[in-house]
Design a protein around this nucleic acid. Structure first.
Lengths: 201, 201, 201, 201
DNA sequence: GGCTAAGCGAGACGGTACGTCTAGTCTTGGG
DNA sequence: CCCAAGACTAGACGTACCGTCTCGCTTAGCC
């Protein structure tokens, strides 16, 4: 979204970084207050005390603003918790994600993911800033787990990642049940069986 | 949505069933033509050659119209393909779903599921008319599979259903990869391992 | 409006005279309650507890309904007050009209006369049922006054009638001043001078 | 209507005077084309090629737009024709008014005056921008006439003005006869008698 | 006493316009 | 070139009535 931030400034007043942050903060506050749908660029502008142009100069639409606000709030995809067994690190990370999904992050992910279905740009931003970085970490932990042994040699890592995480997203959106600790453990266990090295059958 | 269709008509001109269908058809056509977002009640009315009131009299908003159009088009949750082994029937059904998701049904499910994140009424309608009926069928097939043997006795059916289907929905929305036959088979296989009866380890 | 009432009934249920009256009453009540503009056929129907068709079967639009209600309420153009001097009868009648104009009749005449500017049918009805009958009475009284002497021989009766009554309508609509007794007397006096026989100048 | 035009602009793009005029022109054209009733804000907007909001930002309803268009077209209440005798100037002015009433101005006055019966704001605007300025001119001419002699000393100027002009408005609305030159002269003559100084009776 | 033609209530229907809203762009003047 | 303010086009929103049109019932008057 909004490029990578590197704008070549060849003259003129530079854009205020302070305003940038203020806008992102206002956007996020509004989303959590009134919900994604009810937020408008006009609303953000009013709340920040900023002209609409100032926002449109930086982002193409409200989804982009909120996307960036969301990313900015998260910081880099948080490191996995420490544990020498890779698979245990994976399990803990799943629990961490689940916990986040039970709170405001869940609400944001829900809204952004939904909005992304209608907006390819946003979809791309969401994928690149949220989905893929997280998948990459899981990818690495699964690779390590493979080396540590116990997982099948012919592991399809992409499908494996899906097996661990898809159910969590599913429940986030479907409302067929809570994303409880017990549920996450169950998902972990089931998916683990799917990847385990079979001694003999 | 729009109730269960049973309106007590105690006088007055009855609502035209023909119009009802025409509106649903126009709605569906429009969604597939221009996308969910770009569809408006006014557009549907214009395309059907109907007054706006005629639509508002029956549905509260466009999501409701399209939801009903979607449901109506599906007919009842289609029977599972025939096979004497329950698990094979499940696999075939997963492939059927996947195939549908690769086509227009996929586009509709994507849009409606996304929209449902912002609209509790729609979420309820989607759950009751799409999600739950399909889960129920899977539930039954899994129960039968249990009796046919090979699956663990302490099966958590809800979690199991998620294991089989969540990845398909995940790819529908995330764009991390295609919902190919191979992928579905992989998902089936993985999830199956998670449910299989362990002889000993 | 609504023809002359003589419909040839060759079979079928006759129209209810009772409903007719009820509708007229409701119409009048509504006009006085909420004003001409805010009255709608639907409103009258609802208030009377009658279907819209029942009204449209008898009148072409709300102005026609209200016009008839107005006429019906008035009864025939009331006889002039008694006095052996024709001119005095005229003066008294002017005062009577003025008094009516200060009340609800004034409100109705204002509204109907205004509406008539946009509706030739209504204009005709208003002229035939209100304006002309009243002018005719004035005409007669002026004729008598001429015979009684004191008025010029070459009297232009049409213009004379205007001189006596136009100012009253003018104030009804313009709001430049009240239609007080004193004002009416003044108008009478002025107009009278205009018609008086000049002995010599 | 629309205030007195003096809006304090403390920032922001100023309202386009050009658009303002274009809207007024379109409004007037439409009224004369299709009649007051058939004109709609939407029609004006479409004809001008302007958003509806641009109109609603300036006027509360179509009557206000047309009122202002009407005023703008008239320019200031035109000076009375020249003649050293005040009463003759009055007569000429009556004829001028009558002539205007026979044309498009008459149609506009009819419609606006009628509409004003339902809209106090409009009534006020009409009174202040049309009625009163014209009455004021007549007032002055009558004062001068009084000084030139021939009119009664105890003249009630308000009632006198009504005597001269009310019949013209009456015929404009009632359709009881044309506003011909002969008629106007007759009205003038009659009204004049009402105001003339009596030597003896 | 049955037939039949209208009346009748309710309310659906195609329209038109309303007045409001938001999106995204454009235009001021000032920094 | 940035910025706040706010005008601007565009077009959907959901509502209100219009005047017409079914429905399934009365309800009179004639046979």
């Amino acid at each position: 979204m909004s490029g990578d931030g590197t704008r070549i400034t060849r003259g003129g007043r530079p854009r205020s970084e302070q305003l940038h942050q203020a806008i992102l903060k206002a956007a996020l506050d509004l989303v959590l207050e009134v919900g994604f749908r009810a937020v408008s660029i006009e609303g953000i502008a009013a709340k920040t005390g900023v002209g609409k142009t100032t926002i449109y100069r930086r982002w193409p639409n409200k989804a982009a603003v909120i996307m960036e606000a969301f990313i900015a709030q998260l910081g880099p995809a948080s490191r996995f918790p420490e544990d020498e067994r890779a698979v245990e690190r994976l399990r803990l990370q799943m629990q961490t994600t689940a916990k986040a999904f039970r709170g405001r992050v869940g609400a944001l992910v829900k809204a952004l993911l939904a909005e992304a279905q209608f907006d390819p740009e946003l979809a791309k931003a969401f994928r690149e800033n949220w989905t893929l970085p997280r998948r990459k970490l899981v990818f690495e932990v699964l690779e390590e787990a493979t080396q540590q042994g116990g997982l099948r040699k012919d592991l399809d890592i992409e499908a494996a990642i899906d097996a661990f995480y898809a159910p969590i997203y599913y429940r986030l959106q479907m409302g067929t049940g809570p994303i409880s600790e017990a549920y996450v453990d169950k998902v972990y266990e089931q998916a683990m069986e799917g990847q385990r090295q079979r001694v003999k059958r």
